[in-house]
């Protein structure tokens, strides 16, 4: 899915970003770069710091420590320069509910020189949004579609989606995913997609960043993540009360003689370690992003 670029232009550069709310560190030294054309899935538990990170990219939060550059600009110092290139859709929606759909489209269009009215009309028709409908009277799903329309109609260089499909029905979720895929199809567009629905992230992302308690715990290509994570089933000669302590095992399940590990890396090392403990590997398989997420989240919690 990732398209090749001769010179990878950095669209987002976050360096050692720190943000605290009272005593709690919402972001703790986060560093991240996103190159043009990348589709990055941002995953993490509730309160992990995903929304805080996205708000920094939008300039809604000032960096307490560290730096944030989007298109090479500081989003706090130059909001028009940055925001005019970003299409943003959040879980909250936050559209002005007193506006009608046509008013929202007309108002939003004024801010983006690249607004494509034909595309806006096409999306509006596709989403079934009547011009004279007041946003306050629309259902949550229809409001999300209206938000998606204004986030996409100017063909943004960077599309930021913060839990956009949270609490929405499968049809609206399909629309949102479809929009991401179409944006990706536009050469050079970049997408940052934060979601709890890892199956969706898996569908569209070519790189995944996992945030845990304000820190980046995993940042890699999706394909590489899936290649390097394995589920390994094993049996031991004697029953065990505790899971074996082996470096590289992210999570353990099981009991007695039968154990299962979520293993990061080559299984050859694990095989030797298990053999030394009087056991043997019986089965090795791939794992879903869901399992990897849960394993890393549990590891972080420990």
């Amino acid at each position: 899915m990732k398209r090749g670029c001769l010179v990878a232009e950095k669209i987002v550069e976050v360096h050692d970003l720190v943000r605290t709310y009272g005593r709690r560190r919402a972001l703790d030294g986060v560093s991240l770069t996103i190159e043009r054309g990348a589709v990055l899935g941002l995953v993490g538990q509730n309160g992990a710091g995903k929304t805080t990170l996205i708000k920094h990219l939008l300039g809604l939060l000032r960096a307490e420590k560290g730096s944030v550059r989007v298109f090479g600009l500081d989003p706090v110092a130059d909001p028009p320069g940055v925001l005019s290139k970003i299409g943003y859709l959040s879980e909250e929606g936050d559209l002005p509910l007193w506006m009608r759909v046509d008013e929202l489209v007309r108002y939003s269009a004024a801010f983006y020189p690249g607004w494509d009215q034909q595309y806006a009309d096409k999306l509006q028709k596709e989403f079934g949004l009547s011009s004279d409908s007041r946003l306050g009277t629309l259902s949550k799903g229809q409001r999300a579609r209206a938000g998606l329309l204004v986030a996409l109609a100017f063909r943004p260089e960077l599309l930021l989606l913060d839990e956009p499909s949270s609490g929405l029905d499968p049809i609206v979720r399909r629309d949102i995913l479809g929009a991401i895929i179409r944006t990706i199809a536009d050469e050079g567009r970049t997408v940052l997609f934060s979601s709890h629905l890892l199956s969706e992230v898996e569908q569209v992302s070519d790189r995944v960043v996992m945030v845990q308690a304000g820190r980046v715990v995993l940042d890699d290509d999706l394909a590489h993540i899936k290649e390097t994570h394995h589920r390994v089933d094993m049996v031991f000669g004697e029953p065990r009360t505790d899971a074996p302590a082996i470096d590289g095992a992210i999570a353990w399940e099981g009991g007695g003689k039968s154990w299962s590990a979520l293993w990061l890396g080559e299984t050859v090392q694990l095989e030797a370690a298990i053999a030394a403990m009087g056991g043997r590997i019986v089965h090795t398989s791939g794992v879903s992003l869901d399992d990897i997420f849960v394993a890393h989240a549990s590891e972080g919690a420990r």
């Binding site: 046509d102 007309r106 108002y107 269009a109 004024a110 009215q117 009309d121 509006q124 028709k125 596709e126 989403f127 079934g128 949004l129 009547s130 011009s131 004279d132 009277t137 629309l138 259902s139 949550k140 799903g141 229809q142 029905d169 049809i171």
Partner: peptide, 22 residues
């Protein structure tokens, strides 16, 4: 709020009578 089951209507009215803002 409004009917949560509301979905895309086949009779979508798209109107664009007012000029765009300068």
């Amino acid at each position: 709020g409004p009917d949560e089951t509301q979905s895309a209507s086949p009779q979508t009215r798209i109107r664009r009578t007012k000029k765009a803002f300068r």
